Simulated assay, not measured.
Amino acid sequence: MTTAQWLLNLGLLIFILATNLGTRPVTRRRLALPIILAVVAGAWLLSDVPTRGNDVALDFIGAGTGVALGILAALLMPVKRRPDGTVESKAGALYALLWLVVIGGRVAFAESANGWAAASIRDFSISNAITGADAWTAAFIIMALTMVTARVITTLIRCRSLPLFTRAGAQPAGQY
């Protein structure tokens, strides 16, 4: 991995944990920002996705894994409506651990692909018609972007499913 890729992964981890750990209000901005960033990152990083052999199948596996992990991340971040009608989320150690494992796993795979596991990954790729490092990179980027998107969508669904009133006369205050 390049220094830029290390910094990108570290920055992503710091951003996710800094904006989600603890008890936080759920606002439109807080839900929209990760989606906007995912769209921009996708447009920037996925301009030339390999499509030969089983590369597309690998991308679908990455997307499916990302969706499952995103739903899990959202479930590890409970939401509740406050008495004033606003919604808050609370993320703790398990949420942080999930993101550490996912981002750490991607980094470990990338590093091992250039080191001790290079021959095994090459042989696996050849026997499964995966065209190379660019295909793996695209699948991991797709996994990351779908994870973020699935977490936001799941959180939004969970917020919208909360009862609108928590006590007599309380009105929602423009949040989810």
Rank of each mutant, 00 (worst) to 15 (best):
T19Q: 08
N20S: 15
G62E: 00
R106F: 11
V56P: 05
Y95A: 00
G53R: 02
P50N: 03
L17E: 01
G85I: 04
G64Y: 09
S112Y: 12
L37Q: 05
R82H: 13
G64E: 08
T86Q: 12
N114L: 14
P78K: 00
V102H: 07
A93P: 15
V101E: 09
W99N: 00
L37M: 13
A91P: 03
I14K: 13
P83M: 06
G104E: 05
W99K: 00
G53P: 01
A93T: 15
I36H: 13
I71T: 09
A113D: 10
A74T: 04
P83W: 06
I36N: 08
S89A: 13
A96M: 01
V102C: 04
R29V: 12
L97R: 09
A110Y: 12
V56M: 09
E88S: 07
A41H: 04
M77L: 06
P83Q: 04
L46M: 01
I14L: 13
L37I: 10
A74N: 06
R106S: 05
A74G: 04
G42K: 00
A113F: 08
G85D: 09
L69P: 07
G22Y: 00
R28I: 06
L100N: 10
P34N: 09
L75C: 11
A108S: 14
V67M: 07
V40P: 02
E88I: 09
S47E: 11
D84P: 10
P34F: 07
A63Q: 05
F15D: 10
A117C: 06
P25L: 01
P50Y: 03
P50S: 10
T86F: 09
G85L: 07
I61R: 06
E111W: 12
P34W: 08
R28D: 14
R106V: 09
R106W: 07
V40S: 11
G62H: 03
T51N: 13
A74V: 03
L76H: 05
L98Y: 00
V39M: 11
A38L: 04
A57G: 10
V107A: 13
I71C: 06
T86V: 10
R52Q: 15
S112F: 15
